[in-house]
Design a protein around this nucleic acid. Structure first.
Length: 473
RNA sequence: GGCCCCUUCGUCUAGUGGCCUAGGACACCACCCUCUCAAGGUGGAGACACGGGUUCAAAUCCCGUAGGGGUCACCA
């Protein structure tokens, strides 16, 4: 049997890392088993889903290197892969359920439901649907119809327990009375998640449904639904622990960046995010931290997925990103750094960036840091406050440095270092006194790539000009 | 509130009754290296939520308590 798994987002904004992690695990599971990865767009909530977000999901997944075999852009034998293009299917299933007596029209208005839910909660009772419209008699029904009341279609859940084997948490049982009747078709004619997802999982022949823990309790409802429509096979379900913020509350924007796209913009490498996310809720052994994509695919196993919510730790992600930056080729880093520089409004030259990359690759945790490190190579610096403080009082010294550098025969880091160290010795200066004013004058900052190499890269002409400008002419 | 799940260093985790004096990683501290900042090296501090059992033996099994999370939507 070919493993078929799907990632089925409801694109209403940017891709949250929690969803990205779910997508990753779906993908790793599919690839590990040589199965099929499907991307399905759950766009039945017309209020929230946007076309832009639908494109965004695909871009984010592609950036992460998560590809799909069926879905938007690639097609497949089980399409269409957008639920809004499958409405006939859902209506057909709903009609069948209605005919079988497994579903009924519910005339309760949202206000009434809200009111009753509130009262139930106050009385300490279960707030789920109370089944009021399930047993309306002909007269009551006729009255509502005559009134022209809009109605939704509810599934009449059978009064029996549902047990299933969860792929990550083991056997789970839901008691009949705890699974209340739920809406499958809204009054606007669109299906709810419960119906659409279940029907699609069935029709698209999903073998495994791996999703977030927030969907855990929708499982019995979907199983009941599939049993009622006579699905020939019901997928195996697995629920992943949620990702929470440092305060253990659900991870959200107030915790900082949570969207994949934001991480990209901030200068994270996709392999760093993937490696980090893989380790959020999953582990391989007691010591392995770095995994290539291939190793992840080979070793991924749902049985090693944790059961408890994991806190997102941005510092560890950054550390890991630094590791991957150091591992990256200078060529790739040069491309990326140039792009970040340009996005920051600095007209950077790729060849210069390539020569500078070896100086900064072990200094960055984020690619965006390349901007501050390399800016001085492309534009004359406006020394920051602390840099100015270093320059003040060192004017004569800087002038002397300029004079000596001007007479230098070769122009390379070693020769430049010799000159500066020579002067340092002559004047009996400490390292700070000797080099920080120069760094300040040349780069406009006190934190920069190594000085001598930076000066070499800058070139004699610009170095002398900056030194003399700082010295007051 | 009902139901369900979870609870090992601050964080991610290893651990499936004796290998645990509880291992690794991030973060933190100290030292080394050093032109700034990093990177790197060495060392350090730091956890089995609590209370009862079971057992020769429990982080590991059972019960309870506390805390956290999920869900009970015409949102997914």
């Amino acid at each position: 049997m070919t493993v078929r798994v799907r990632f089925a987002p409801a694109p209403s904004g940017e891709v949250h890392v929690g969803n990205a992690r779910t997508a990753l695990f779906d993908w790793l599971f599919a690839r590990h088993h040589g199965g099929v990865m499907i991307l399905r767009i759950e766009d039945t909530d017309q209020e929230r889903v946007t076309e832009e977000a639908i494109t965004g999901v695909q871009e984010s997944l592609r950036w992460l290197g998560i590809d799909w075999d069926e879905g938007p852009g690639v097609g497949g034998d089980f399409g269409p892969y957008r639920q809004m293009e499958r409405l006939d299917l859902y209506r057909e299933v709903t009609d069948r359920l209605l005919q079988q007596g497994d579903a009924y029209r519910c005339y309760c208005t949202p206000e009434e439901l809200e009111e009753r839910r509130k009262r139930a909660l106050e009385r300490g009772e279960r707030p789920g649907y109370d089944g009021r419209c399930r047993d309306l008699d002909e007269q009551e029904r006729a009255a509502f119809e005559a009134e022209g009341r809009p109605f939704a279609i509810r599934f009449a859940t059978p009064d029996r327990d549902v047990t299933f084997e969860d792929l990550v948490r083991g056997e789970a049982t839901f008691r009949g009375p705890d699974v209340t009747d739920f809406v499958i078709l809204r009054s606007n004619g669109l299906p709810t998640y419960l119906l659409a997802a279940a029907v699609d999982d069935w029709k698209m022949e999903m073998t495994h449904v791996i999703r977030g823990e927030d969907l855990f309790s929708s499982t019995p409802r979907q199983i009941l639904l599939l049993e009622a429509v006579g699905a020939e096979r019901i997928p195996a379900y697995g629920h992943l622990p949620l990702i929470v913020g440092p305060d253990r509350a659900p991870l959200s924007k107030r915790h900082g960046a949570v969207a994949v796209e934001r991480f990209r913009e901030e200068g994270f490498l996709p392999e760093a995010l993937v490696n980090y996310l893989a380790l959020l809720g999953w582990s391989y052994d007691d010591h392995t931290t770095f995994f290539t994509r291939e190793e992840l695919i080979e070793r991924f196993d749902l049985s090693r997925v944790s059961h408890n919510p994991a806190a997102f730790d941005r510092e560890k992600l950054e550390w890991m990103n630094g590791h991957y930056i150091r591992e990256s080729s200078d060529e790739r880093l040069a491309d990326l750094a140039t792009q970040f520089l340009k996005d920051a409004g600095v007209s950077a030259d790729r060849d210069v960036a390539l020569r500078a990359v070896p100086l900064i690759k072990e200094r960055m945790k984020l690619l965006s840091e390349a901007v501050d490190f390399l800016r001085f190579l492309f534009e004359d610096p406006e020394p920051e406050e602390k840099a100015r403080a270093q320059i003040e009082g060192s004017e004569d010294y800087l002038r002397e440095v300029a004079d000596r550098l001007e007479g230098l025969e070769g122009w390379n880091a070693a020769a430049i270092e010799e000159v500066l160290r020579g002067l340092k010795e002559e004047r009996e200066l400490g390292s700070k006194k000797a080099f920080q004013p120069v760094r300040a004058a040349v780069t406009g900052t006190l934190i920069s790539p190594p000085l001598f190499e930076s000066i070499e890269l800058l070139g004699r002409e610009r170095t002398l000009a900056r030194l003399r400008a700082a010295a007051g002419g």
